[in-house]
Amino acid sequence: MDPVFFPANLLLSLAIFSLGVMGVLWHRNALSVFMSIELMLNAGNLALISFAQRFGDSAGAGLVLFVMTVAAAEAGVGLAIFIRLYRQRSTVELDKADELQG
């Protein structure tokens, strides 16, 4: 595989991460927020891979595997929580779930 222009990789990662952050902050639907979180995670993965390739150190690539595993587990737990949430109040809008306040 040809080495990709390194700064372009990082810029892409930054753009995806920022999109993820905006999604997390601005989407109301819990599933959308969840997907935005996945975006952020994968932006991080992209950055890790790029650095691993740039510096020839496979530790970064290894770490990505772990992140993907954790992300999958997290997705499972998160979706289960949303299903419970939906059964309780027939919606998964995050603005409606604000009982934990002072």
Partner: peptide
Amino acid sequence: LGDAFRWLQNGRVQFYAFAIL
């Protein structure tokens, strides 16, 4: 004093995320 800081603890997950950011 508690009233003055009550808005910080508003129960909205996205607000907390915003604070972290």
